[in-house]
Nucleic acid binder design. Sequence first.
DNA 1: ATGGACGATATTGTCAACAATCTCGTCAGC
DNA 2: GCTGACGAGATTGTTGACAATATCGTCCAT
Lengths: 223, 223
Amino acid sequence: MPCSPADPPRPPTGLEIADWVRQRIRTGRFVPGQRLVEVDIIRQTGASRSKVREALKRLEGEGLVEIEEFRGASVRSSTLDEVRQIYRARMALEGMAMHDFTARADPAMIARLQDLQDQLDACVRDRAPDRFGRLNNEWHRLIVEGSGNQVIADHLQRLNVPIHRLLFESFYDDERLKTANADHRAMMALIVAGDAEGAERAMRRHIGDGFETLARIESEFYS
Amino acid sequence: MPCSPADPPRPPTGLEIADWVRQRIRTGRFVPGQRLVEVDIIRQTGASRSKVREALKRLEGEGLVEIEEFRGASVRSSTLDEVRQIYRARMALEGMAMHDFTARADPAMIARLQDLQDQLDACVRDRAPDRFGRLNNEWHRLIVEGSGNQVIADHLQRLNVPIHRLLFESFYDDERLKTANADHRAMMALIVAGDAEGAERAMRRHIGDGFETLARIESEFYS
DNA sequence: ATGGACGATATTGTCAACAATCTCGTCAGC
DNA sequence: GCTGACGAGATTGTTGACAATATCGTCCAT
């Protein structure tokens, strides 16, 4: 079993450290307000201090982390109003992505989307909110990637990081799960019909409804 | 003349260096493809090397510069297709900002907007495309700031940096100047009438037309 | 017990020296 | 003249030591 000779213990790069921290923020392993002490990250990742500092600066630029002089980095927390603003931006950008996707979609992409849709239907039948959440993210990502607009894709990816957990939360409400899936099916129909404007409107409504549900569920967590 | 005792030669911070470089990229003092040599920036700004490197990394995160290992930073250049994608994102976000502005606008904001509009009219009469460009930027910024959505404002600011020069270019076409100003006046009317959806559609058309004009003018500069 | 001054420790910010790599001119060989 | 190897200088990447500041426990006076 010849193991490849050129990949053993390579020290992580700044980008990798940033990914590592970002991942942990997304999944809730690092919670808002938590301090990110350089030495701890060094110990856990094996990176050098420069790389860790570089990564934290990068995450500050993304708005994920707050850095105070001589007090270091901590996970930034969002207010409910900021979440609302993020959802508003998502409505705009994902709506536009849906518009362009519909105008460009070829049969192969539509087939991939249909495949995902079938799996989502199965999740609704089986009451599998967690899996539904994952596939739902895939579904949205497919639309955005298929829109042919990498700029919008990048900005959406950044917007989604701070609300990653919330993107799963609302599907534990069975009613919301069904509504969301019905939205998806309706959008599929509009895509197939080539109705770009209709699909865009539907996407915006869909995301707007998602926030309303969320606001009801989560409002207790915010001031 | 007591000069304040606590502001003498303070070394620039990383953020200030980033602003300094960003400004020079925006105004075309640094052109796409140009190498940004650390020592040169140090000499011109008086910052330490750490700060300069920090600033360049930050700008890389913003997509403004490209950093290659052991080759350093250079100003990233955009293809025409990327400019198109940026304009598409602007249509989405500024459209949404216009929607929310119209729904929220109070008399004071509308008055400030009207004031700017009067000055824009004067520029059209006087054939002052340069001043028109500056005031036009102000006009758009006022809409976005007044929308009450800082997230959208931030993302738009980032989107605008690489196309800053282009935002002035098309107004040297007298026809475009008049059309754009007519768009503005029409949007003002929709805002006053409280027609948020109409204003959003108008803004999207306005930006879309801006790109079309640009694409005609500038297409020769891109492959 | 309480509040405030003090100091030890922990943590972050800065800098300069050194290492790694690239760039570009030079020159030998064909 | 052309090509490719070579090497000096230029530029970037990395590390470690040191400085500046914050944190938190301790002790003393009241």
